Simulated assay, not measured.
Amino acid sequence: MLLGFEHVGMTVSNMERAIDFYCGLLGLHLRLRRTTAGGELAFLDAGGGMLEIAAPAHEVGPFRDVPHSEAGFRHITLAYDDVDAMVERLEEAGVSIVEGPRDAYNTEMIKRVVFVRDPDGILVELVERAAGR
């Protein structure tokens, strides 16, 4: 029996910078951070699942967007009660806004949406859920 969504993992180039972004700016909560044989590992609680971030001891190459012609993860999405207020906060912190904020296309699921880039260039979608979700 499925219990729920557990976590998604990603690689970052700098653990401290990633924690500052995801916890300090986006509001996730650090639940575990430890040194491993290959670098550092952390689990950040997003309220409905976790974000596992790994910072290898070796240099990490740049993030690359997955082309629409290839299978793969395109972005992570986090839900907020006020996307526009989050955008103001992120702009003040110098975060790159890629698209939006704007009304969502899938209005049955999402009301407002904005896409930003994390410190490694990974695409992060911030949404306000549609009424009744």
Rank of each mutant, 00 (worst) to 15 (best):
G4W: 05
G4S: 07
G4C: 04
F5D: 04
H7R: 08
G9L: 00
M10N: 02
T11C: 11
V12C: 15
N14H: 12
N14L: 03
N14I: 02
N14P: 04
E16V: 09
A18H: 07
C23H: 04
C23K: 07
L25T: 00
L25C: 01
L25G: 01
L28E: 00
L28G: 01
L30Y: 06
R33D: 06
R34E: 13
T35Q: 14
T35I: 10
T35G: 10
T35L: 08
E40F: 09
L41M: 14
L44A: 01
L44G: 00
D45T: 00
A46E: 03
G47D: 07
G48R: 13
L51E: 06
A55T: 08
A57E: 11
E59I: 11
E59G: 13
E59S: 14
V60H: 03
P62Y: 08
G72I: 02
T77G: 15
L78R: 01
A79K: 04
D82H: 07
V87H: 04
V87N: 04
R89S: 12
L90Y: 02
E92S: 15
A93H: 08
V98T: 11
E99S: 13
E99A: 13
G100K: 03
G100M: 01
I110H: 07
F115R: 03
P119S: 10
E125H: 00
V127S: 07
E128N: 08
R133F: 12
